[in-house]
Design a protein around this nucleic acid. Structure first.
Lengths: 123, 123
DNA sequence: GTTTTTTACTTGCAATTTGCAAGCATCTTG
DNA sequence: CAAGATGCTTGCAAATTGCAAGTAAAAAAC
């Protein structure tokens, strides 16, 4: 018999899309107050759980744990052995994750222009 | 006596910033699953409450009402008399809101490349 | 080599936010 | 003016958030 028809488009992680709109799809992956801040930290080269909790926004650890797993599930990040030779693992952006750089840059540029109390952060 | 020291930087709407990071600031304004979809619709020229509810994602009316008010409060949108000559009001992006176009475009480009089941929507 | 500290989480729970349905004033249309 | 259409608000169940506490393994200190 024919393959089961889902009738619904899905993203690469298998979640049903709200609509075919690419913006809606990205928001289903990253559309909350924390995910893009974790990606920002990853772009700054941070890789360990503790590094993310040290950021000034103070992400709760349960949220961080959930968001890191979501990034793994959606293929934006991957786990790699920590660079310091320890047995622990660190997180690193994949190519798909690094491709979000223009999104973060345009967000940064917008806020620097329109919300003057913000300041570009040096990693 | 001296003016009350808040000690906390604020955005233009008067909300306390989680951090000086511009990305964090933008996320405090737009960082949820719906706000940027409303802005997308505004960029497509939609202006009436009914227009936004007609988008395929199906935003709940209480969320839409809340998000439109947030956009007004943060100066991303403004209310203008409807174009059809009726007494009702419509919404329109301000310059600050229109300046988010590069953010939406980079989001669209990312998803079109990395989430192949998405399709650019024609307004 | 064993106590202590750090790291990377998970769990519990109160508070907030979401989403669905319903209600309700305007407006507009016939 | 009666009948929709529009632009909301309200009520409430379900999901998500955020804070504190707990835990287990790894690393550091002693």
């Amino acid at each position: 018999m024919a393959a089961r028809k889902s009738g619904q488009a899905k993203n690469k992680a298998g979640d049903i899309l709200r609509s075919p709109c690419p913006v809606a799809c990205l928001l289903d992956i990253c559309g909350d107050r924390w995910t893009l801040l974790v990606i920002r930290d990853l772009m700054f080269g941070r890789s360990r759980f503790k590094d993310f909790t040290a950021s000034p926004e103070g992400i709760p650890t349960n949220i961080l744990s959930d968001r890191l797993n979501r990034l793994l599930r959606h293929g934006l990040a991957e786990q790699v052995p920590a660079e310091d030779g320890s047995l622990r693992m660190g997180y690193r952006l994949t190519e798909k994750g690094r491709a979000l750089r223009p999104v973060l840059e345009s967000m940064r540029d917008w806020a620097l222009k329109w919300e003057p109390s913000t300041k570009a952060m040096m990693p």
